[in-house]
Amino acid sequence: MGTPWGEVSVTLKFDVPKSDLVVPTITDLMMGAETNEREIREMLGVEFEGLKNKRHLFLPDDWPEGKYPWRKDEHGVEDMIKYTHKSVTEIRAKRGENNG
């Protein structure tokens, strides 16, 4: 630490079968990982063995069980994002304005 190139970043990748989504926690080694683990738990539904605080992080508390926004095999991007943009002609027709 303290010198150029003095830090090594490590990326760990796990393949976990969808039927058994359990990964051991690393919060006992690194307290700060709690945020990440809670996020992955609520977004993907991966259970962390030994994670103490299991409250939702970003999603509201009354989010339905068993729905995970990041699982793209269950619902695609189109499900999650809706455009609310409408054409001005439509808006003006709805308001009953005289077009022209």
């Binding site: 992080l57 970003f58 999603l59 509201p60 926004p69 991007v77 189109e78 999650m80 994002i81």
Partner: peptide, 14 residues
């Protein structure tokens, strides 16, 4: 947290 969660990453993927 989460009061300003806008799902912006999903918007990017579209």
């Amino acid at each position: 947290r989460g009061f300003a969660h806008r799902g912006i990453e999903y918007m990017g993927m579209k």
